[in-house]
Design a binder for these strands. Structure first.
Lengths: 152, 152
DNA sequence: GTTGAAAGGTTGGGACG
DNA sequence: CGTCCCAACCTTTCAAC
């Protein structure tokens, strides 16, 4: 499928604020609301747009610690298995399987250090993990959200 | 500020689909649309809700490679500086400053391997970086979006 | 294939109880 | 918190490019 410059502008506007109205988007890309709706519908049907979500300040919800845990497995560990079990944990924000060393990277969000330790322990007990290394984030920035995760 | 169980339900519904209507949310939490709006307005004013964004399938936009680059700096490098310059790069999805070793973790999304190399080179030239280690993702999962980043 | 205009239904946003 | 109201918005249809 082809995506033109107008589509990219629409996606950028939705990235900034997914609750923008079609009329607002239309005014910015000089298109009617109907034309904007048809383009967004098409982007959804073709799977370019996967969904819409809210961006939260997790510190205000009491999950103030962000960390990354690098995992190393035994040679017999199925990669799909670690992804399946890890993704069921509410602490896991994202899981990446890695080419090389380590074998996987898990992005965690937890309430406090004790919670982080429990979470890492849980990952270790559920799998044939030969080693972990956890990186604790002091601060974070994410595209499209201009607040510090810890520093507010 | 206090967040009750209904607020959490509303946030969960918005996490699933940020473009839900107030009426739809109201029906699910057994509240009127006006009551839902007042709660969402309050969550926005207090900063719990930071914004709303679209979730994209980046492989379909031609940015099929995800990677993490661990950065180590000289002792004199200002942490804020690396964040400021890195966040200006369109390839950077997120930047985390880390307690310990490494000093920072940059989540990159690029078109191909040549693009990845150029991006890492750019990071290195812009700062007093003493070392980098790049982890290339084979596959990824993120909370709230159930598609494989590479494997589709 | 694309677009805009118009019609009718739905939603949002205030005021009030 | 809910109910009411009205303006704004969405969604479909249709004709035109």
């Amino acid at each position: 499928m082809l995506i033109d410059e107008t589509d990219r502008e629409i996606l950028e506007l939705l990235r900034e604020d997914a609750r923008r109205t079609l009329a607002d988007i239309g005014a910015r890309v000089t298109l009617s609301t109907a034309a904007v709706k048809r383009r967004i519908d098409r982007l959804q049907e073709t799977g370019v747009i996967v969904g819409y979500t809210v961006q939260l300040d997790h510190t205000k919800l009491g999950w103030g610690i962000e960390a990354f845990t690098e995992l190393r497995f035994t040679g017999t560990t199925k990669v799909g298995e670690i992804v399946r079990t890890t993704t069921r944990m509410p602490e896991a924000q994202a899981v990446f399987t890695i080419a090389g060393d380590p074998d996987a990277l898990v992005w965690l969000r937890v309430r406090d250090m004790a919670h982080l330790q429990r979470t890492i322990d849980e990952i270790r007990t559920h799998h044939q993990v030969t080693g972990t290394k956890t990186l604790i984030a002091l601060d974070s920035w994410m595209r499209g959200q201009q607040w510090p995760a810890q520093g507010s």
